[in-house]
Every structure is written in structure tokens, then in C-alpha cells.
């Protein structure tokens, strides 16, 4: 059970926000904070997932995992691309480029799966708390890497990517526990393995 009111309080809009962002934030506040609407969306989605899923062998955890990974992966691609044209060792640049293309392909496949299942591409705003969701990399993180001084860039980039992929591995392990669909569980296994291996390599690169 979540407490929409407490969450809304945390989402106060800072006064300095430009108008465009304010509008977006207001939209979110309306969409995300209405307790009844959030609950309605969640229940409706759960029902839809249950009805469709029963026949096709997936459950709401599979859906949630795909929805969260689509967003998380997308941000990972954005993060990985930041290494392009920056001062990084060749191995770091190669790894970042490979992360970008593999996650892009993975994201497309996951989004396609959600479409095939007739599920929304993203979850209702307050949905993932109930499932033990992790946050996706926020714009702040991407900006902090993009803005890093040349001398700090590689280290900042690696640290952020380690944190990001560590979060992805967590999402994958939750799917391994709660998911139903064999292919999605396999996908989660590969995501866990690849992100874990990437983190290991990045830790080596930091140490070296």
C-alpha cells in the first residue's frame, strides 16, 4: 500500500522551474497524485493484465518489469551516449558504445512485447512502489555526467553507469522472483548477467 499524499508532498515544484517544466510538472501532479485515479489506473491495469495474462502466460510482474526496464534502458542509452566524443580511454568508449546499441535493441524488443500484450508502454505513476520498484536514472544524473569537467568525466561517467546498471540488475532479480513468462524471465536473467559483468568491468576500469 502506498500513501499518495506523502508522495505528493515530496513532489513540490521548486519556484525556479521554467514555465514549460511547470506545465509538465503540473500535469504529472494531476495524473500522479490523485489517489483515486492512481488506484483506479492500477486496478484497471491489474485487471487487464490478469485477464490478458492468464491466457497468454504472463503476470503483472512481467508487465511491470518490461515497463520499468523500457524507461531505465532508455536512460542508460542516453547516459552511454554521453561518452561519445569525450576524453575517455578507448576501452571505456567501446564499452559505452556497445551498451548503447545493445540496450537500444533490447528496449525496442521490450516495447514491442508490451504492445503485443496490449499493455501500456509505461506504468501508472504510483505503480512501481507497490512492486518494490527502483527509480530510473533521473535527468539530474544525466546532466551531472554531461556537465562533468573533462578531467572528471571518465570517473563520473563510470560511477554513474555502475549505479545505473546495478539498479537494472536489481530490477531483473525482482522479475526472476515474481515474473511468470519464461521468455521474460530469461531476458531478466540475461539483463542481470550482462549488467553484473559490465559493473565488474567498470570497477576494474576505475581501479586501473
Amino acid at each position: 500500500m502506498t500513501r499518495p499524499r506523502a508522495e505528493c508532498g515530496a513532489r513540490r515544484v521548486p519556484p525556479a522551474l521554467p514555465v514549460a517544466l511547470l506545465a509538465v510538472a503540473a500535469l504529472v501532479a494531476v495524473g500522479g497524485c490523485g489517489a483515486s485515479e492512481g488506484r483506479w489506473a492500477r486496478e484497471a491495469m491489474a485487471e487487464r493484465a490478469a485477464a490478458a495474462g492468464a491466457a497468454r502466460g504472463f503476470n503483472s510482474a512481467d508487465v511491470m518489469f518490461l515497463q520499468m526496464m523500457v524507461v531505465h534502458n532508455g536512460q542508460g542509452v542516453e547516459l552511454a551516449r554521453l561518452a561519445r566524443g569525450r576524453e575517455v580511454r578507448e576501452e571505456v568508449g567501446t564499452l559505452a558504445a556497445a551498451i548503447a546499441v545493445t540496450q537500444e535493441a533490447e528496449t525496442a524488443a521490450m516495447a514491442g512485447r508490451l504492445r503485443d500484450w496490449g499493455q501500456p508502454p509505461t506504468a501508472p505513476p504510483d505503480e512501481h512502489a507497490a512492486h518494490g520498484g527502483m527509480p530510473e536514472t533521473a535527468a539530474r544524473e544525466i546532466a551531472s555526467v554531461a556537465d562533468a569537467a573533462p578531467a572528471d568525466f571518465e570517473r563520473t561517467f563510470l560511477n554513474m553507469m555502475i549505479a545505473h546498471q546495478d539498479d537494472a540488475a536489481q530490477l531483473a532479480r525482482a522479475e526472476a522472483i515474481a515474473g511468470l513468462h519464461p521468455e521474460i524471465r530469461e531476458l531478466a536473467g540475461r539483463i542481470d548477467a550482462s549488467r553484473t559483468a559490465q559493473v565488474e568491468r567498470m570497477l576494474e576500469l576505475l581501479g586501473g
Binding site: L21, V24, G32, V71, Q75, A123, P125, E127, A139
Partner: peptide, 11 residues
Amino acid sequence: SLLAVIPTTPA
């Protein structure tokens, strides 16, 4: 990126 992020980040 914020637009892309918004739907799922809150809770």
C-alpha cells in the same frame, strides 16, 4: 529526458 522520465518516476 525529463519528459521521457516523468511517467514512471514518482513513487
